[in-house]
Design a protein around this nucleic acid. Sequence first.
DNA 1: TTGTACGCGTTATCAA
DNA 2: TTGATAACGCGTACAA
Lengths: 342, 342
Amino acid sequence: MNYEKDRVTIYQVAKASGVSLATVSRVINKQGSVTPATRKKVEDTIARLGYRPSSLAQSLATNRTTNIGVVIPSANYVFISNVLAGITEVARERGYLLTLFATTHSREEALASIEKVISSHVDGVIVFDDQLSKDDVSVITSYNVPAVIIDEQVSGDIVANIHLSYDPLLTSFIKQYYSRRGNKAMSFLHVHNAGRLLQHAEKSFIRNHNELGKEYNIINCDDSYTRTYAQFLEYFKTNRSGLFVCYRDSIGAAVMNAATDSGLNVPNDVEILTLIGTKYARICRPVLSCFHIDMEEVGKRSMYMLIDLINNQLQERTATFDATYSIGESTVDRRGLDPDYK
Amino acid sequence: MNYEKDRVTIYQVAKASGVSLATVSRVINKQGSVTPATRKKVEDTIARLGYRPSSLAQSLATNRTTNIGVVIPSANYVFISNVLAGITEVARERGYLLTLFATTHSREEALASIEKVISSHVDGVIVFDDQLSKDDVSVITSYNVPAVIIDEQVSGDIVANIHLSYDPLLTSFIKQYYSRRGNKAMSFLHVHNAGRLLQHAEKSFIRNHNELGKEYNIINCDDSYTRTYAQFLEYFKTNRSGLFVCYRDSIGAAVMNAATDSGLNVPNDVEILTLIGTKYARICRPVLSCFHIDMEEVGKRSMYMLIDLINNQLQERTATFDATYSIGESTVDRRGLDPDYK
DNA sequence: TTGTACGCGTTATCAA
DNA sequence: TTGATAACGCGTACAA
C-alpha cells in the first residue's frame, strides 16, 4: 500500500487515457455524450489510477456542496441524538453529507458556529439550538443559505419552521388534574440553561396555575440523574408527597427512584410527569408517564423540508408536531387527556 | 435583509478597499506584514460588505480542510452518541468541523461511505463501524487520510487504534461465577447483525464455557426493548431462572422487567448482566449490573489521537480501554471481579 | 463526439 | 509593505 501517493487529478486521468480533461469530466458526471469506447477507456484508467474526484473542487466549480449543516448543542441527550438519527437517515437516502456545528451553552460559540455555517458553503442548514435567537438565524439566511429551524419561529423566503407543541397538552393536563381531584402540590423542576423548550413549558405551567389561582412550586435542580437523585433523597425526608413535572426522563427517573427508595409510593404519594419522554420512560418501574414527540420523525421531516426548500418546491413552510400523552404508571389518572378540555 | 445577495468575494473586498486581493488575504489570515492603516481599511470594508471567506476555496488552495470525517452507524444507540459527543467536544475545542458519514447495516453503503470520505478531502477520519473490515479501512489510509479506528486493529503509518477490551472481564466474570456458586444456567442473548463487539463477546462467552465444560444457551433476540420484553414475558412462563448476558441496557432492562413482571425475583431467580452499560443502567430498578466503558472518553481520546496523527506527533498508536464491572442489583455476587482470576 | 479556455475563491511565490 | 500571477482541481460554454 502506497501511503505517499499524491492525489490523482482529473488531469492525470485525461493524460493517461489520451483524452482531454473535459471528456473525463463528462464520464464521471455521466452527462454529455461520450463514445462507449472512450468511456470505457477512461473508466479503466480511473480504476487503474484509483482516481477520486475532489468534492472540494467540484463544489467550487458548481457552487453546490451536497452538504447540509446541522447546528445542535453538543449535549448528549437522547432526544437530540434522535433528531440527528432522523436527519442522518434522510441525508443518506438523498445523498447529502452532514456537517456538524456543535454548540455549547455559550452564546459566543453559538455565534461562531453561525460564521462557520456561512463560510462552509453548505447547501442548507438545520438549526436545533436553544442558544440562538431569531436574529442570529436570520444572519444565516441573509447569506442565501436555506434553513429549517426547529422549535423557533423565524420568517423569511428561505426559512421553514418546525414547531414542537407541548403547551396545549400541558395546559389540559394541569386543568384536568385540578378539576378532577388533584390533591398533591405541583412542582416544576427548573433546570438552569436548559433552553427554550423548557422555558416555554415553565411559563405555561406558571400561567395555568395563576389562571386557576393554585399554588405551585419551582424547584431548581441540576440536569443530572445522579445529583437530582441525591437532591430528592434529601427532599423526600421532609416532603412526603407531590406531583413533579420534569424536563427529561433522566430527571423524572431520578425523582421517582428517590421517592421509591424513600419508601414512598408512586403514584399514590408522588406523581411524576416527564416533558420530553423517550423510550427510556418505558424501561422504568413504575413506567414513567410522559409527554412525547417522535424526535426521529422531527429530524426526518426537517430534512425533507430543507431539501424541498433548496429545490424551491416547499409548499408548507411550517410543520407542527403535537406532543401526545403517554400514560404510564407514575401518574394516578389513567384516563388520558382531552385536548379540548377548557 | 437582502436574501438575493451574492457571495462577496475577496476580490470585491480588495476593489472596495483599493488594495490588491493579496493584501486582503494577508489581513484575514493575520500573516505577512500589513500597515495598521491598510489593515483597518480592509477590516472595515470586510465588515461593511459582510465578507466571509469561502472555506471551499481556502481548502482547495491550502490542501487542508480542518474537517474531520466520522464514520458511524446511523443506529441510534446511546453509546454511539456518547462517542460522538466526545468527538464533538474536542473538535469544537480544537477548531475542527465534523463531517458525518452515516452507514447502515448494509455493506454496500458502508463502502460508499469510504468513497465519500476519500472524495471529501477531510484531514482525517474516525471510524467506529462494525460493517467495515481492516481492508476497507486500508483503502482510506492508502489515500493518505489519517485514520483512528475504534474497536478494530488496522496497521499502517497513518493509523491509530482504540481497543475496547471486554474479554478479560467477561472471562473472569464467568469463571468466578461458576467457581463460587453459579447455579443458574447462563444464556447469551444473540442479536443478529449487532456487530463485531457483540460477536467477540459471544465468542468469548462460548470459549469460556467450553473450557469449563459447562452448558450454556444462546438465545436469539431482536435489538428492541419492546420485542425483547414481549419475548421474555413468554419465555419466563416456562423458564423460571437463569443468568442472562445482554448486549445493551435496553435489552437487559427488557429481560429484567419481563422477569419482574412475571413474578420472578431479580437477582434471586433471574440475574442480568449488560455488556455495554450506559447511565441508563442506573435508572433501572433493580439497578442493572453492567460492564462499562466511558464512551465519551473514547470519543475524546480518538479525536486527540487523530489530531496528533495529523500533526505527525503521535507517540502511542494504540489505546486500550478496559471495561469495568459496575456492580448493580441484578446480579447476586456483589464482590466485584478479580481481573487476575484464573 | 471531443478539445480549448475560462471561471470558481482562495493561498502563496516572487517582484517591485 | 504591497501587487501581479500562478497554482489548487474541477465544470462548462463554446468551438472544432
